[in-house]
Each structure stands twice: as C-alpha cells, then as structure tokens.
Design a protein around this nucleic acid. Structure first.
Length: 669
RNA sequence: GGGCCCGUAGCUCAAGCGGAUAGAGCAUCGGAUUUCUAAUCCGAGGGUUGCAGGUUCGAUUCCUGCCGGGCCUACCA
C-alpha cells in the first residue's frame, strides 16, 4: 500500500510540474521524513528545481503546496525547513486498506526468471560459505515469487571437475577402496563428511610425492571421457554427495527445480554448438604465437579493449588476437583442444536464454517430502518433463571472486549480438564467509601469529578448514532446544524439537541475510548462536507474542484476522491513529504497510538485507507497542478492538515478511 | 603492475538516487506496577564517518590523490 501511494504521489507531482513549469522530471526523489510527526513522505525536489527556476527553494515548495490540489489518499502538503515538502497521508484510509489486505493491481513483467544458486562442488560437505549463497539465492527466489514472478531455481553441478577427481583419487589411491566399498560408504549417513576429510588428505598426498599428482590428471581425463570404471565411481560419489547437499538445504526449506550437470554439457556437446557460433561471430580468436599459442582466447572482461572486427572474419586466425595484449587474454579453449570452465559456462548461458539450439535430457532425481520434484540433467531423459531454460531474465548467485569470469560470459553474449540477453544477466555478487581467528581457534586450528592479527581467515575446503553446514545447524538446534526445554516443559519432546528447529533456521537464515552483500561475514559461533537483539528469533518472538494475545484472550487469531478486523470503522481509525496522540501506533501501522515496498526495493537492488532490516524494525516497533498498550485489560471495547486489529495486522505482515526470508513462526517460544 | 570491493561507536554492522540531529545490535552501567509482557522493554555513556582536497544550498554517499585491508589477475574450477 505504501508503495502504491508513493507511485500515485509521484505521478501527480510530475503532471503538476509539467503543467505549471513545463518541466519533465524523470526521477522524482521521494524520501521518508526523519520523524513520524513530519508525515509519511518527504520531497526534496524544490532544492533541485531552485536552479532551473531561479527561485528560492522555499518559494518553490510553497508554490507546489499551494497548487498541487488534492490527491486521493493524501491529507496535507506542508513546507518544512528550507524547502522540504512533507506529505501526510490519510491514516484511516491507509489503515483500512491494510486491514482489508488490499493489494493494488500491479504490472508484472512478462517472462520467466531463472535463479541459479548453491552450485556446490559435489565432492564434500556443504559449509557456511555455501549456506550464505543458498540462503541469499533462496530468499531472492522468494522475493521474486512474492512479486508475482515465475521462477525456476537451478543448482549447477560441476560433477566432472578436479574437485570430484580429487576425492576419487582419495578413495582409489589412498584408501584403496573398491567400487563396492565406496558404494557402501555412500549409502551410509553423512557420506559428505567422509569426503570432506578425505579431500583434505588428498591435498597433502599430492605434496608427498611428485608422482602423485599424475593420478589426478589421469582420473580427470577418465571422468571427462566417460564410460569407464573411474567415471562410474566419480558419478556415484558426486550423486551421493549431491543428495546430501539437497538434504542439508532441505533442512532450511531450500529447494531446487533443476540440476544441470557439467557431464551433460560435455556429453550433449553444448560446447560444440557454442564454439561454432563464437568463432563465427569473431568472439574467439586463435593465438598462433606467444604464451597462449594454440589456444582460442577472449579479451579479459573489465579491461576489454574494443573488439575490433577488422581483419579476417570467421576463423579469426591470429589477426584479431593480436589486438589483445597477452596478459588481457582469457583462454577459453586450451591448446590441447579441451575447453575451460568459462567456455562451458558460455554454452550453458546461451542455453539459459534459449540461444544455443540444444537442450538437456531430463529425469526426475529427488522428491522432496512435500512432493515437489527436482529434476536432473541426463543424456537421454524422460519424454515428459517441465520446460527449463529459454528464460527472460537470469540471476546468478555467485561470490564476488568470480565476477571477472561472470563478466567474460556476459561479454561473450554481447559479442554474439545478444545485447538484450546480456542486459538481463545479473551476477548476484556477494562476499565470502570467513572465520574469525577466535572461531578458528575454537575449531582446533593452530594459527600463525599473522593469522591471529587478521580480522578474518578464509575458509578452505581443500584444507578441510571451515564450519560444515549440518554441524552449524545441529549446534543451533541444540542451543535453541535448551532454551525451549527451559521454557516449555509442558510440551512433548517432538513439539519442542520442532520449535527448536524453527528457531534454529530462523536464527541462521536471518544471520546470513542481515549483512549486506559486499560485507565479508567474519563468522563467529557466539554471534551466530545469539537469539537476542538483531536476530531471527527476536522477530519470531514478536510474532509469537502477537499470537499469544489472541490465545490468552480466547480468540482464534486466524478467524479474527479474516473477519474480526473489518469491524473497525474509518471513524475509529481516525480516532485512535489521528494527531500526535496516535503517532506512535501509527508508526507501527506505517511500518506494517511497507512489506511490498521493501520487497520491490530488495529486488531492484538485489539486496535481501533490506528485508531483514525491515522485519527487525517492524518487530521492534511491535515490541514497544506490546509493552506500552495492554490489550486484554483494555476496558474501552472500541479501543480494544482497534488494538487487537493492530496486533493482527502486524502479525500478518511479520509472518509474511519472515516467510519471504524462508523463516516460519513457532506456535510458542 | 591492472581490475573489483571495503575502511562509520570498544566490537559487529545500517544509513534507498547526495538530504533534516549519522542509526541499530552486542558489550558496559542503571532501571521496568509478578503480567497479553523478560528470547522483551526503558534509560545512560560511547562518533573528527581512514587522511587531504574538490563538486554542491547540502557529502558517510559523487570526483581526485594518498594511507590501510581483502579478493581477482592459471592452458584450475
């Protein structure tokens, strides 16, 4: 509602400015006043117009206020300070609409959105860094769906790379396991933990003997070729670990629709199709001499010089390549003819936009407890399957370290003439999760003096250095369980377990979302396990408190929200929300009205942290309200009804906003 | 060397496209009628927004230069 009113205000303003001054104002800044007493919107536009109109800002503001006339839903326009225009809405009207949960008709952009996230190498357990990725990605999916978009969720699986090869080497060369033995291990619980430890050991093993790394090269080649024992073992390992990842993420209510795998990108020859087009468009050039002799290269993204199309077209023999300085070349095809991962990524992204002319085979892979079906790529799949790919927009949730590679893929699309696709390609970039030195020490790692002085230490899967996702979740559930047990001895074991899980997920998801994307999270158990202050459980608790009011009052909160709230008249809203006396409760209503506004901000800025901040502020305001206004003991029936309605509306919005963050509210806390 | 990001209270972080007195949480200290109320609330202290310039009516925000830190810069992924 808040968002809808803002749009209406802007439209009227533009129309007014055009009519009165003959000015076309493209971006009208609308702010929120620092204090609720000043109104709901603040317009600093008089400052901007001052130069154009050669008048004092205050004078202009006065003219606008005098001439703007009436706008439905708005009460007053006032000049403040040196030229601000503070705008007040009709509180009763907005409150009435919010109570009835009216949602104005929106223009939803056409076309499907594809969000790729997680993309964990299937060779070891997921860790906290992967959690940040998956939680950001899943929340973004929920934001888009809340905004009415149709979304496909994909999790790219690199099942043929060195990381999987390393674990295969570990089982075959270090552990000397047979295929049957590995199969047995893979069927046991937490196989991903076994791989986690083994992967770290393989790194050491490579260093022990110069001959050892040869096993990696041989294994990698065998995996890429396929149709052999090594490839079969790699497949069984990667599939087993992948299933573990799906289980881990499902604990957090994170689901995927489709799992495209690198093996199919290879075996279905996606690259061949892409390679032809890239050569033809002159995006790739062949290097005949120098450091990259024998390779097909692209200009490195970010410092790409203008692609010159002069010289030999098509084959691009040497001539174009000479225009790219050697250090600015990104090798796409190696001199031995194999493709690097950026090349595969280009092909994959052409497929995403429906530009490749090839498709995956599909088969069902994993059925979630809620019956949702997750599909996986295969060479010859089932006849009937959902249509994936060929989408209008894509978001890739990938950490900031890969931004250059991501930009290279975007440049390749541009080079192919697909600017419209490149424009709808968003690298959803975020910073990594690292460990504080204290956290590392707690985990038993010995730190160098240098490391002790650092703000954070990077997680390393290769070294086995990090906090595993399931371990963190278990720790959170354990800590939450202690609190629940202390408070709710009357509940059954299963009930307490369920609540503890909800709280743990709330704490974890909120923790990963409260930091803005460019901020490195220096992970620390003390902070992550906190349930007080700026945390998920704080927000959950506010929602639980709202529910408690109804339960203790003998009212069913759901049916009250459906039917009871309509009993508050416009006069009553005016009475209780009007004037300075109503300011503090109105502030709560106004915050509650902002959910869809905040969601749209999150999408536009690809920044879910705004929503976390919003839920926290709403919960804070509600807690203040809760403390200040006893509801059940209220003797004035009209006022009591109004206060109950306030609680019901805030509860609904808290549940809704938390839901977008993938957080549910326990029955009691 | 080049590219990207960061530097705000003791600590961890906010501050929407440049706006009104730079806000939260944690920690510290002091309080909250035994109740819909403590996973909470109220209050206090705590800031030269890394430094120096510039643009602007107005800069944490934009520009330039320094200082400090991180990441990327493989015929790895």
């Amino acid at each position: 509602m808040y968002r809808y009113l803002e749009r209406r205000l802007v439209e009227h303003l533009r129309e007014f400015l055009k009519r009165t001054y003959g000015l076309e104002v493209s971006n009208t800044v609308v702010e929120q006043p620092p204090k609720i007493e000043f109104g709901e919107y603040a317009l600093p536009l008089a400052f901007e117009l001052a130069r154009k109109l050669r008048k004092a800002p205050r004078k202009i503001a006065e003219e606008i206020v005098a001439g703007i006339g009436t706008i439905p839903g708005f009460e007053t326009f006032e000049v403040a300070g040196g030229g601000y225009i503070n705008v007040r809405v009709k509180r009763a009207e907005l409150a009435g609409a919010l109570t009835a949960d009216e949602s104005p008709v929106e223009d939803i952009p056409a076309g499907k959105v594809l969000v790729e996230h997680s993309s964990i190498n299937p060779n070891k357990a997921a860790h906290i860094g992967h959690l940040r990725n998956a939680i950001l990605g899943d929340t973004f999916v929920r934001l888009l769906r809340f905004a009415g978009r149709e979304v496909d969720v994909q999790n790219y699986i690199d099942n043929t790379g060195v990381q999987v090869a390393d674990v295969v080497v570990g089982f075959l060369h270090i552990e000397q396991k047979s295929r049957a033995q590995i199969e047995a291990l893979a069927a046991a619980p937490r196989f991903d933990y076994v791989c986690w430890d083994l992967y770290a050991r393989v790194s050491h093993w490579y260093e022990e003997d110069k001959a050892n790394p040869r096993a990696r090269a041989d294994t990698l080649r065998a995996i890429e070729e396929g149709n052999n024992e090594t490839a079969a073992i790699a497949d069984l390992i990667s599939v087993a670990v992948l299933k573990r990842h799906l289980e881990t993420m499902d604990r957090l209510d994170i689901e995927y629709d489709f799992l495209p795998r690198e093996s199919e990108i290879l075996h279905l020859h996606f690259w061949d199709a892409a390679f032809g087009k890239l050569k033809e468009a002159g995006v790739l050039t062949y290097e005949a001499v120098g450091k990259n002799a024998g390779c097909w290269v692209m200009p490195r993204a970010g410092r790409a010089k203008t692609l010159t199309t002069g010289g030999t077209e098509g084959t691009g023999e040497n001539s174009i390549g000479e225009n790219i300085a050697e250090e600015d070349q990104k090798v796409i095809v190696r001199s031995n003819g194999t493709v690097g991962y950026v090349g595969k990524d280009i092909a994959y992204h052409m497929w995403k936009f429906g530009l490749l002319g090839r498709d995956f085979g599909y088969r069902k892979f994993y059925r979630y407890p809620n019956a949702h079906e997750c599909w996986i790529s295969t060479t010859d799949g089932e006849k009937d399957h959902p249509h994936f790919g060929d989408v209008a927009e894509i978001y890739n949730v990938i950490d900031a370290r890969q931004s250059e590679a991501q930009n290279t893929v975007i440049e390749a699309l541009r080079g192919l003439g697909h600017d419209e696709a490149a424009d709808r390609y968003t690298h959803f970039s975020y910073e990594m999760v690292a460990l504080t030195p204290r956290c590392a020490a707690e985990l038993g790692y010995t730190l160098s003096e240098e490391d002790k002085g650092r703000a954070w230490i990077e997680v390393s899967g290769r070294k086995g250095f990090g906090v595993k996702a399931d371990d963190l979740l278990d720790a959170l559930i354990g800590a939450a369980r202690k609190e629940v047990d202390a408070r709710h001895a009357e509940l059954s074991d299963a009930e307490r377990g369920g609540i503890a899980a909800q709280i743990a997920i709330g704490a974890l998801r909120y923790f990963m979302l409260k930091f803005t994307k460019p901020s490195v999270i220096a992970f620390d158990f003390k902070e992550a396990l906190s349930f007080e202050g700026d945390t998920g459980p704080y927000v959950q608790y506010a929602a639980v408190r709202a529910t408690n009011i109804f339960r203790k009052g003998g009212l069913d909160v759901e049916s009250f929200s459906r039917e009871g709230t309509v009993g508050v008249s416009a006069e009553d809203f005016d009475k209780y929300l009007g004037g300075a006396a109503g300011d503090d409760i109105w502030e709560l209503w106004l915050a509650a009205a902002k959910t869809s506004y905040v969601v749209s901000q999150c999408i536009a800025a690809t920044e879910p942290a705004y929503l976390a901040k919003h839920t926290f502020q709403l919960a804070q305001l509600f807690n203040t309200f809760y403390h200040r206004y006893p509801i059940l003991s209220e003797t004035d029936e009209g006022r009591k009804k109004f206060l109950l309605t306030t609680a019901a509306v805030v509860r609904r919005e808290l549940n809704r906003a938390l839901g977008v963050m993938g957080i549910t509210v326990p029955p009691v806390m």
